[in-house]
Simulated scan of single mutants.
Amino acid sequence: MKTIRTTLTVAGAALAMAVPLIGATSAPAFAASRDGVCDSGEFCYYYNSNEAGSVSDFTGSVSDLGATQPTCYDFKGAGAGQGLCVKNNAASVWNRTGHTVRVYFNSGYSGASQDFAPGAKGNLDATLKNNDASHQFLGGGGGGGNQSPVNDFDHGTRGFAADNCTAFAAYRIASRLGVPNFSNSWGGTTWGNAGNWANAARATGVTVNTTPTVGAIAVNDVHKVGHVAYVNAVYSDGSFDVEEYNWNNPLAYGTRSHVHVSDAQADFQWMLHF
């Protein structure tokens, strides 16, 4: 059940103002850039409708906004709602990033959602107002921040073999990368086995290179029939983490950390940026 917003008493308001000072000793990711001002390059929640009240600003995806202090992401800016957790308390947003940002009803990027295009501002719809739990920067262009791994697969096939790497990657493309109708025949070509995905991407105009970014689809075209995975984290040394199906765990979800772009059988050779 979602938390219902209650009115703060004077004493409660004073406590809420004090809490962020306590939380400062264990600030969550992106805290260094979160100052309660909606700057260019940030996605911002507002406590009230029509971009009013206290602001909470973000530079990347967050899989769980957190519901309790001192570990939740809170409203930083001056105004109504300052010090409260953002989860289940936001009414409007402003997307000042270059990515479409999707706000979700549930943690882990799941449940009902609402998309905000780059530059868009507006109120959360009736389902998500005061019921926001996570948000996702869509697309593989980078800048979205590393993402916590979560097995959110809906087990739909989208024309691929059930519970194979291709079906999972297709789900992530459809649910996170802004291509909701992606399938084995998307773009008028047959994507087929994972080893063919780089060629299919080129044929349909999808950017193909060797640069890993969060949200990219990693392609291995040298291992048997190939393999595809979703990049959820990238590191300064060029290595990256992936989420995948049917690699170490037959027909099941798994993750790997600090893999690379190389010709090795266990690595990846290409990155697809939808």
Results as ranks from 00 to 15, higher is better:
S185T: 14
I173Y: 08
T166M: 09
N131L: 06
N181A: 15
D154I: 05
G140E: 12
G141N: 14
Q147Y: 11
G143P: 02
T166S: 13
N146I: 01
G159C: 04
V179S: 12
T157K: 02
C165Q: 08
N146H: 00
G188W: 01
F153M: 08
F182H: 10
G156P: 12
V179D: 12
H135F: 13
D152P: 01
I173P: 05
F137L: 02
H135N: 10
G144I: 04
Y171A: 10
F182R: 06
Q147A: 12
S175Q: 11
G139N: 08
K129Y: 14
T189Y: 05
S185F: 11
F153I: 07
N164Y: 11
H155K: 13
R176T: 15
G141T: 12
Y171N: 10
A174G: 10
G156T: 14
G144A: 04
S134F: 03
L138W: 09
S183P: 08
L138A: 13
F160I: 06
T157Y: 05
V150D: 08
G159H: 03
N151P: 02
R172L: 11
A167R: 04
A161T: 10
F168Q: 01
G187Q: 14
A174F: 03
G145P: 00
D152E: 01
H135V: 04
D132Q: 12
K129L: 11
S185E: 11
G142V: 06
S175W: 02
N146W: 00
I173G: 14
G145V: 01
S134K: 04
G143V: 02
G187E: 15
G140I: 13
T157R: 08
L138K: 15
G139C: 07
A133S: 13
L138E: 08
V179K: 14
T157C: 03
S183N: 15
L177W: 03
L177A: 01
G140W: 11
R176D: 13
A174D: 09
G156D: 14
F182A: 06
G141A: 14
F153T: 03
S134V: 01
A167E: 00
V179P: 07
Q147S: 08
N184M: 06
N181G: 14
C165E: 05
N184D: 14
